[in-house]
Amino acid sequence: MSAGLPVLVGIDGSLDGLIALGWAASYATLRRAPLHAVYVLDEQRQLPASTPPTGPDDGSEVLADALEELERLRFTAASLEVRHGHPTKVLLELSERAQALVVGRRGMGGFAELVLGSTSQACTALSTDVPLIVVPDTWDPTAPPHRRIVVGIDGSVEGQDALRFAFELADATNAELLGVHAAAVRESYPDPNVWVDPSRQPWAGAADQLLAQTLDDWNAKYPEVSVDQRAVADHPVRVLANESEFADLMVVGGLGHTSFSELRLGSVARGLLHHSHCPVAVIHHT
């Protein structure tokens, strides 16, 4: 992460945007970084015919609500601005001069597309230089933290950047780190009676070895971080979504192989972002 660069957050006038703003402020405090909140006026977005006419939107109300929320949080190192253009393009351009990009999972304006539509795929695919954090509208900043960060592991080289991010954040927040691997299991296996250990499924040994080899090197670099590992034979969306219920952050790589190969553009990313109970950080390999 680049010291001195701001944490960038997209706001859109919705409650969801304010929740993302709160998460971004907490993260900026942790990183000792300034916060840059941006409202993008998407002038090409068509409003429904049933929408009553209103005055021109200059973004002043959105910025005022954001400023009020920051004052409530007692966060002062922030800059706020209005930009014109397509939200994804503007955010990605600004993220080139930021250390992280934070958006809400749902919103009332253009940012709704960032997760639910094609804009989400573009943002996830193209945000290669900074972490992209998607904050669900169910995130409660007043709830006691779980002190746990979960990272999805597939053994790929590309996944090392996600591990670096997860370990660094776990070290900074004194959180436990849980490495999770969703094992790809064939539809059929030999009769359990012929296994060496009938109580142990045959895929477990390889999965545990992959997790140990992946985590041991990083644990040596961050010896103060408490590390646990878990291998589950199931769909990665279900595995990670279940773990997210007891986590403060879910970290996944933007491009990998095996179970997590679709996290860059495919259904796994969309499914996880829809169903995660905690914020999700997508870390791209640079």
Rank of each mutant, 00 (worst) to 15 (best):
P144E: 11
F111S: 15
V40K: 09
W218M: 04
S259Y: 01
G254A: 03
Q121Y: 04
W23D: 07
L21R: 03
I11K: 11
V239C: 12
K89D: 05
H275T: 15
V251C: 00
W139Y: 12
T286A: 09
K221W: 06
V102Y: 11
Q160I: 08
V251F: 00
A281E: 01
L272H: 02
L255R: 11
R72D: 07
H284N: 07
G155H: 11
R148P: 15
P34I: 07
Q160N: 14
D12T: 12
L80P: 00
V282M: 03
F246R: 15
V225D: 07
F165D: 07
P131M: 09
P144H: 09
C123P: 00
G110S: 08
P52D: 03
H36M: 09
H86Q: 06
I11Q: 14
T54W: 01
R148D: 10
T214F: 01
A162H: 05
P53R: 13
G17E: 14
Q121D: 12
A77H: 12
L116W: 04
P6A: 10
V102K: 05
H275M: 09
F167T: 06
A172R: 14
S199E: 08
A100S: 13
P56E: 12
P141D: 04
A212V: 07
R148N: 11
T128E: 13
Q160V: 11
Y27D: 13
E176R: 14
Q160G: 08
V40S: 08
C278N: 02
P48V: 00
V103Q: 04
H284F: 02
N242K: 12
S267Q: 08
W203H: 01
G17L: 10
Y39F: 14
T76W: 01
V135S: 06
D58V: 07
L163Y: 07
A77P: 03
V134E: 03
S244C: 05
A125Q: 12
D129I: 05
H84M: 01
D248W: 01
H274G: 07
G179H: 05
G117T: 07
T214K: 03
A20N: 11
E43C: 03
R106D: 13
P141E: 06
L240S: 05
V115K: 04
G271N: 10
S261M: 10
R83P: 03
E245M: 06
V225I: 04
V7E: 10
H285E: 10
V157S: 15
A37P: 02
H284K: 05
G4I: 04
N219M: 07
